[in-house]
Amino acid sequence: MISQSLTRRAFLRAATENAQNSLLILSVPSLLLAGKQAQAAMATAQPFSTLGVEEAATLEAIASRIIPSDETPGAAEAGVIYFMDNILGGSRAEVLPEVRKGLAELYSASLGRFGTGTFYILSPEQQDSLLRDIERTPFFNTLRYLTIAGMFTMPSYGGNKNRIGWQLIGFEDRHVWQPPYGYYDADYMEKGA
């Protein structure tokens, strides 16, 4: 049973882990039911405004293969899904139908290959094999674009939580810099041309 104190994100992760650890893969309807319960329970915990819980879970899983979480945090920790939710309901609303169509196709492909359409419960290797097949499609390019944008946007758009994206690449958003800026100009200051 899902605790009332779990946030939506914790729910999604719990649902995924439970499913992966389970001998019986959870059926989609039960996940949806769990999702609805969580949605009702977590109305105050940053609800998605545009995406359904299932869609969000799948999109987050895809984003996590584009920028994985390994030794350093990835798209999941940066909250890229919240950027997607924000943008797909706002300035990129026109992209949402294409995204939904792509998700439906991914569901079918997953069902055909792995016996379940629920992408986010697959292993990373299984997920990658499905994504490799579509990596040149407009759908994948759109998700790559949104994942990267959400990773490196100003946090006010919902992504790049705690500036995780910027920390990953070593970008400091400062308004004033003084030389030396890098190794080579420091060396130049010392030794000249």
Partner: peptide
């Protein structure tokens, strides 16, 4: 953001751990 969107020019990786 623009730099990451353009990444892939050296290794060819457009997504995944190598891309990151």
């Amino acid at each position: 953001m623009s730099a990451a969107l353009g990444t892939g020019r050296f290794s060819g990786a457009r997504w995944g751990s190598q891309f990151k």
